[in-house]
Design a protein around this nucleic acid. Structure first.
Lengths: 208, 208
DNA sequence: ACAAATCTTGACCGGATGGTCAGGGGGAAG
DNA sequence: CTTCCCCCTGACCATCCGGTCAAGATTTGT
């Protein structure tokens, strides 16, 4: 039961490896089937470990889930954090869209895990959403508002909603990939087209 | 076992009422917890019926889920179906956004149910997505493409992606409502602001 | 009012699932 | 090489959950 929270001992080589395998397998399972739909047996199978062995590294199924979410949040905030207050408004925002889209494309499992959690009322992320996440968005929204006040960006779009629109559009390609593929047909590749579309889309939105 | 598919007998008053109560309760449960997370006991409790009684009206948990999805699809396609090829391009598209947003606002449970299904690879909707849904979108995309060819709409936005952007943005407010509330803070109402924001947003996107 | 059909339920079942435990293996320090 | 501790596992358990069933309650048609 050496799980959770503050590690005191510095994790052996074998511990690091197995924790990694477990978390990766769990990400597969949770993102595909949701928390309830994922079973410890399935996670163990994907990880190539025995079920009791999972529970040697993590106290419970919930603990695995919690570990994934905690790890995820740092990653998820990164693209927005990089928005540079001193940069060129339009270029900065377009670069942000591009980063966020790339992240959704490269980490669809993480995207779905995050979404699933929000769907269920974010029981485990509630505080983090209202805390660090809100602070980060407030911070960047203030930057955007300043750009607007300086006349360097259209003033008629609320900054908070503008940021959320980026989340919505980029996550959509990850979370609803099946739908996008169905609608576009087997010949077209959603991801390949998404970048160009979003660039043109936000190009128009952000035009002076 | 009088469930599923084509009804032959015309459903008694009490049958209609109980089926309705069950489906409504199931919508609550499925949209909150996903398919695996929702239990028959919980659905029965919400519906105010006994579990065996549920299974008198529906053959199985899956049958309830399937009934919900089937019913949902017609509703979900309606706003797009109303897009009028003979109307004014910009006005038609803005009206579509407005209708879709209103539907997400008034039917968040349905929105989440739909999203959950897509998340899991749409095992039950796969064919419908590639069939009726794709046809509908292709149809409307052709209308938009015609508008673009006629010079009545900016030509540099792919019609299919444009439609999907509406889905992404409107569903976001429903599916991620918890997140939106957290980010905006307790004082602000996401839904109240969404309409104005999306109007301004698409106003710019669709400007000539 | 009576019988037939419909509706409802408590009790129960088998399998899946999260979690436990006592003990066996294997690597690292000496 | 040995020892000790970390690592691992088969077997097992309690609970939950979807689903069944036989019998009782209610409604409906006449």
């Amino acid at each position: 039961m050496r799980d959770a929270g503050e590690e005191s001992a510095p994790l052996s080589r074998i511990q690091r490896m197995n924790r990694e395998r477990i978390l990766d397998a769990a990400l597969d399972a949770f993102s595909e089937r949701g928390f309830s739909g994922a079973t410890l047996d399935r996670i163990a199978e994907i990880a190539g470990l025995s079920k009791p062995n999972l529970l040697y590294y993590f106290a419970s199924k919930e603990a695995i889930h919690a570990a994934l979410l905690t790890e995820l949040l740092e990653t998820w905030l990164a693209p927005l954090a990089q928005l540079d207050p001193e940069g060129h408004p339009r270029a900065e925002l377009l670069a942000y869209v591009s980063r966020k889209l790339r992240m959704s494309r490269d980490m669809p499992r993480e995207s779905r895990l995050f979404a699933s959690e929000i769907f269920q009322g974010a029981p485990r992320l509630g505080d983090t959403l209202a805390g660090p996440l809100k602070r980060m968005v407030d911070d960047k929204a203030a930057v955007i508002a300043r750009w607007q006040a300086e006349g360097r960006l259209t003033p008629d779009l609320d900054p908070h909603h503008l940021v959320m629109s980026v989340w919505a559009l980029t996550q959509h390609y990850a979370d609803f990939e099946v739908q996008a593929r169905a609608v576009l047909g087997p010949e077209r590749d959603p991801w390949a087209e998404a970048e160009g579309f979003l660039a043109a889309f936000y190009g128009r939105v952000l035009a002076r």
